[in-house]
Amino acid sequence: MLVGCDGPLSTLSPAGPIAAEIAWLWWAMLAGAALLTLMVGVLVAMSFGRPRDIPERRWTVTLGVWFSIAVLSVVLATGLWLGERILPRDDGAVTVHAHGFQWGWRFTQPGADGQPVETLDTLYIPAGQPVDVLVTSGDVIHAFWVPRLAGKIDAIPGRENRLRLQADMPGRFDGVCAEFCGLGHAVMRFAVIAYPPDAPPEALTQLEGAPE
């Protein structure tokens, strides 16, 4: 089963703390949902016995209202707490820029010397630290999504959205456009390369000295 959950775009094989938190939330909710489905199944199965007097309010109010509110409150509170934890914060995180277009991504990230470096369809981020991505679009709506590192955020013309992602270890992580954007939607792929902070890749160093 766990083998089936792997993959370069799998939310279930997280490679950073943000994606890991959400994956953990999923497994917890799956367990709860399985229990609830089982409960309803058992209640339905038990109805096939003899007719019996039932207290109406126990079914409609106790089970229907209070039980479901209790379950929902737990899920909602967890979701809110978790959502707050993974939000971008003003903590001086590295900021990069992702600009979507039909059909590709133009990334701007700080180079080895601190000067911005522009790349196409490959984003370089330092591993082991949070990175904020400012997401914009030049034409239609796209969505920036690197499932193993974080959730997704839309790239909307006229707006700048911010998404935080983080990779634990250096490596290559696949990204896709998640919002339908026309003929090239399926091929609007990109890669995120997480590099050791002390060893930036060539792509970020070779452009040193380029005109400002």
């Binding site: 939310t11 938190e21 959400i22 949902a33 967890t78 979701g79 997704k152 998640a178």
Partner: peptide
């Protein structure tokens, strides 16, 4: 309905949305 509740939870929605 239960997957609907999951999708109503914001962080999970950020992953599952549009998939």
């Amino acid at each position: 309905g239960l997957t609907g509740v999951m999708l109503a939870i914001v962080p999970f929605n950020w992953q599952a949305h549009d998939t």
